[in-house]
Design a protein around this nucleic acid. Structure first.
Lengths: 119, 119
DNA sequence: CGGAATCCAGGACGATACTG
DNA sequence: CAGTATCGTCCTGGATTCCG
């Protein structure tokens, strides 16, 4: 199952939400509600699930502060910080890829206009 | 959808097989059948599907060589080669994570033995 | 050899309602 | 505020069969 280290990485940090959560927490600790606002489309279920899995994998810590109002804060563990360079590189590559997509789409449109003008 | 570049990267290179395919093709071009042998558990369907998507994203090229026997070769495009550093880093992180898992498991066993001896 | 087509199971993901 | 619990959907990935 784990013959491929790359796949193991995808398992831990892949999925629809984990990378984005790590990306935020990377900067500073966040509360549960804050994360919900930062990642608008996520449901409570998926956020909770992702947080639990990241915690289980030792990448983040859950800290509960008791008070009049309940406060829970999530932050990167020391080990979790090893993901930062990786996320950085993934983010760079993603941005570059986005540019590529946009450029290709623009060229496509130019061709279409060209074709239309020819008619 | 694409507000997060990291997620875009996951979409392009994530999934169960793509990273492994890229990982192989990275070294040298391979034929369809060779890839099936290199990635034993993959089905034709998933291999074909992954190859098509990688091709569509501009990361790999499909070259057909007509002959007595049909021969199809897949290789990285120039753009596809930009994934190499990323895959390298993901592989490193995955290896390290594997070590961590194994170490933690070993410690767990020590505790168990310790507990048993105490009984 | 290198696929395509079809059918299907399981798990990821989501919507909604409720809780300490 | 920070979650659980339940139910439903969709989509990935797999088994099998067939094709140029």
């Amino acid at each position: 199952m784990y013959n491929c280290p790359v796949e193991l990485t995808v398992e831990v940090m892949g999925g629809k939400w984990k990378s984005r959560i790590l990306w935020h927490i990377n900067k500073k600790p966040y509360r549960y509600g804050e994360l919900r606002k930062l990642i608008p489309n996520i449901t409570q279920k998926m956020l909770t699930q992702a947080l639990r899995e990241l915690e289980e994998d030792g990448l983040i810590v859950r800290k509960v502060f008791e008070g009049n109002v309940l406060k829970v804060e999530y932050s990167l563990t020391e080990y979790g910080q090893t993901t930062t360079p990786l996320l950085e590189l993934m983010s760079q590559w993603g941005k570059n890829h986005k540019h590529r997509i946009d450029r290709l789409k623009a060229e496509e449109n130019k061709v279409e206009i060209h074709t239309i003008n020819k008619k």
